[in-house]
């Protein structure tokens, strides 16, 4: 702990205490520019012969919204797994808020402020929608159960689940399960929110409501990384876009500009057109 830049030290401690996270001794504290909140350094991962992460370097700035697109099997979801700790990388480092978290357990990363919504929702089926949120808020947020009730009730309303508060999560439709997935990630009080295809299957006005919600979240200072095939929703939120293909970042930059690149069009836009055709 000693010997650090005092400002960073104080900041990290404040966040740690407020969020109730316990920084493990022995984790390397790495100094980095104040603006970076999450850094991937030379992340590699393969499943057998398939390379899903090929020396990926990516830096996420505090408060930004980053979009990730790429064809199926490009390694997008695996990248989220590596960041949140459910998939161990073969090589490289993950640095979050100045800590090397490469070997940290998912639950500790969550308590540090790293929340994720799964592409396939992972609700607690036997618990009510409200109880699902209470779990996320009490444990992910490191707070006592009673303290989170009000926040969870409010979050239900924001996510359009207020009238289903006491329904068992297992009885929800897919759309509501997706809403719950997002609500649970928000309930943990994240600093960085990782969204995995939350807009898939939504109709137009639902997508618009989702975009509003994510923009609201972002306005509170939460950094966002969003994997999405519904590109028009994505570019309504993000200010930077990366394209993942075969485990490698093949393009990065301002969204509209990235989407205009011929290489990106070639490997990606076919999928988008097909999706839009299927939605219509």
């Amino acid at each position: 702990m000693a010997g650090l830049d005092p400002a960073i030290h104080v900041l990290l401690r404040m966040q740690g205490v407020r969020r109730g996270c316990r920084h493990k001794a022995g984790h390397d504290r790495v100094l980095e520019p104040m603006s970076a909140i999450l850094t991937l350094e030379k992340i590699s991962k393969r499943f057998g012969a398939i390379v899903v992460a090929d020396d990926i370097d990516l830096t996420l700035l505090r408060g930004e919204a980053l979009g990730i697109i790429g064809p199926n099997g490009a390694g997008k979801t695996t990248l989220f797994g590596i960041v949140t700790g459910t998939v161990p990388p073969d090589g490289g480092r993950v640095v979050f808020k100045g800590h090397d978290i490469t070997r940290m357990k998912p639950e500790h990363r969550c308590r540090m402020g790293l929340a994720r919504s799964f592409q396939i929702p992972q609700p607690f089926d036997g618990m009510t929608v409200f109880e699902n949120l209470v779990v996320a808020a009490a444990f992910g947020g490191g707070r006592s159960e009673r303290d989170v009730y009000a926040g969870c009730a409010g979050l239900l309303e924001r996510c359009g689940l207020a009238d289903k508060a006491n329904r068992r999560a297992g009885s929800l439709t897919l759309l509501d399960r997706k809403r719950l997935e997002l609500a649970r990630a928000l309930a943990t009080g994240p600093r960085v929110l990782l969204l995995d295809e939350v807009a898939g299957g939504l109709v137009e006005h639902e997508t618009a409501a989702l975009v509003d919600l994510i923009n609201d979240v972002r306005a509170t200072g939460v950094t966002i990384v969003w994997i999405e095939h519904v590109v028009h929703a994505l570019i309504a939120v993000v200010d930077r876009l990366v394209v993942l293909h075969g485990g490698a970042l093949i393009a990065e930059g301002e969204p509209a500009e990235v989407l205009r690149r011929p290489q990106v069009n070639e490997i990606y836009m076919g999928i988008e057109e097909r999706r839009m055709g299927a939605d219509a």
């Binding site: 639950e107 969550c110 992972q122 609700p123 607690f124 036997g126 444990f139 992910g140 947020g141 943990t188």
Partner: peptide
């Protein structure tokens, strides 16, 4: 109860 229903979900929501 969360662990009973979904261990992956529980871990991802900060449950040790």
């Amino acid at each position: 109860t969360a662990i009973r229903d979904n261990e992956l979900g529980a871990r991802s929501n900060g449950v040790d």
